[in-house]
Design a protein around this nucleic acid. Structure first.
Lengths: 339, 339
DNA sequence: CTGAAAGCGCTAACAG
DNA sequence: CTGTTAGCGCTTTCAG
């Protein structure tokens, strides 16, 4: 019943060659005569043989698996990224072992340990902060790792993000050009580099226009957090525009504004988000936002990781990809706006 | 630089025991004296040793990996399911090797082959249809598999779904009770069992009230498909209520109705969906829908799969989980509605 | 309970 | 190009 696995020895026997020959036929780089290849392929076909990837991994030291740590799957940006990452990796002959980093911080450390147990060739950490201790362990284990959509001060760690600071600036310019002067900001989780950089760019540009933040609340990248932040911010002396640190929260902000607080968007208040998740384009939100170019971020991430894996000695890189402001209908559009 | 991996032999040497002893200390079921355990643990600790899961898999035949095939990640139901599945599996000592089944149908077969190469202990296929050929191969390979949110006629295949037929009936009862008589249906991809069952239950109940479908269009579970379907359906003699085969499409339907066609929901037309994805609860949609109890579906799926893995001879099971109608604001609420 | 020995399925180094 | 020989890191009889 439980089919006894077909091994390379079986194929070798049937093809009348050695196990090495079989191995070579199934190893991309190796050489075998046309005749051998043919015999082996035929025998393998008949027997339904496929190499045992795990056994290969044990001896070669290469598992062709990439550990992917991910959190916040309810933020639409991540499923999209996950799908693209997985496809890109699959296309290059790697497969993804996925690990959920539940909220808890200490959790991540354990997760990384487990990943390492599987002899993954590399790790991608999407939006999770690593203790420097962990960073050390990965480095020590010789497993390359790249941070996706989060960066870290430690320069030995590769990281790919959008240009969050520039993005923040673009939003400020847009809002300023729209004539807004009472501008609020709803922050994400303050431990995140993305949050920090977006805010820095935003505030920086407001400042050079002689403005400060009219109001500031923290939403922690959570919808509920954003809802509460909105209530607080609009309790008195409300702003006439709000930049929200990501789309996920921005949608909650719009909902709260419109359904609970009875304010029109963009009539009473302009809202701008960050990410350009699919829902930002849905008519119900039609959210003006900064696009994070997921495709390019993924490509870069995979390129960096695989070159570190396949070309030992490759230096870690940090890349920031510029993303455009996508102007939709959730914020007042400045007269003659084009750029 | 690249840390030479610590092996069980290193630990054995330092602890002054045999490799077998080390192995036993790290094998859940095995017995070793308190003293040995202590010595080994200490040595392992000092050396930073962790067993190589892959090597273990080669010899034991158990990889403790589950292959998860998933598509439609842009439908919010799946990221949620993925997260829960992964967590549930992780909690029971298994890890998830993820595979994206891109749209293409033939693709799935290749994906399953690859999964099998990794010696996974089991497979979960979320919303993908398998060729009966594939079914055969998995069965032959002795790798248990369960279908998540999709079922198949082949009774040898375990499957977990919500009670789609009952769900469809509930929607019909609700709409009928609301006084609707011109009722439309927007179908999902017609190859899907979920689509088929939801429609069957829905139509069945309409019929017993002496009604047929006032209109029917196919949206293929795609937002764009749903948008087009809506346009066609409302071009002439529009219905006063629409049941949409899932929430993902229902949101597109609402957007199209309100923003493009200028119809009020639920004023001019009631809309009901299926799944109860997070966005269904967002104020902008406030969608009445049938909840698919993701938690219970996940629990069942994992239970079935793991018992097939861990208790050979366990028979395949098919489970349908009942889910409640969640009444929100997108559809007219019948007078004195309670059930 | 413990160690020695055999072996999982495969690749890699080396003669030929 | 090909077969032989080792050996990856671990578990698992089997004696003791």
């Amino acid at each position: 019943m439980v089919a006894s696995r077909v091994t390379s020895a079986d194929v070798a026997a049937r093809a009348g060659v050695s196990r090495s020959a079989v191995s070579r036929v199934f190893t991309p780089g190796a050489s075998a005569s046309k005749k051998t290849v043919e015999k082996v392929r035929k025998a393998a076909q008949e027997l339904g043989y496929r190499p045992n990837v795990l056994a290969r991994a044990v001896v070669s030291g290469k598992s062709r698996m990439i550990g992917l740590i991910v959190a916040y799957l309810n933020n639409q940006f991540y499923p999209e990224a996950l799908e693209k990452l997985s496809n890109a990796l699959q296309a290059r002959g790697y497969h993804v072992l996925i690990f959920m980093a539940s909220q808890t911080a200490g959790n991540v450390d354990k997760v990384v340990e487990e990943i390492l147990d599987y002899q993954v060739d590399g790790i991608i950490a999407a939006s999770v902060a690593l203790s420097s201790d962990l960073t050390e362990r990965c480095l020590a284990a010789g497993v390359p790792m790249v941070l996706f959509n989060r960066s870290q001060d430690d320069g030995r760690m590769s990281a790919v993000t959008s240009d969050n600071r520039a993005g923040g600036r673009k939003v400020a310019e847009f809002l300023l050009a729209g004539g807004h002067r009472k501008i609020g900001y709803i922050a994400g989780w303050e431990g995140a580099s993305t949050q920090r950089d977006r805010e820095a760019g935003f505030v920086e540009t407001l400042r050079s226009a002689g403005l400060g933040l009219h109001a500031r609340e923290v939403g922690d990248f959570l919808m509920e957090g954003a809802q509460k932040a909105t209530r607080r911010m609009f309790a008195e002396d409300p702003p006439d525009a709000v930049f929200v640190a990501n789309d996920h929260m921005a949608m909650a902000v719009m909902d709260t504004l419109r359904s609970e607080l009875g304010r029109a968007v963009p009539g009473d208040v302009s809202v701008v988000g960050y990410d350009d998740v699919p829902a930002a384009a849905w008519a119900a939100y039609d959210l003006t936002t900064v696009r994070q170019p997921a495709n390019r971020m993924v490509t870069e991430t995979v390129d960096i990781l695989l070159s570190m894996i396949e070309t030992p000695g490759t230096r870690p890189r940090r890349v920031e990809i510029d993303g455009p402001l996508i102007v939709r209908g959730s914020a007042r559009i400045p007269e003659g706006w084009s750029a």
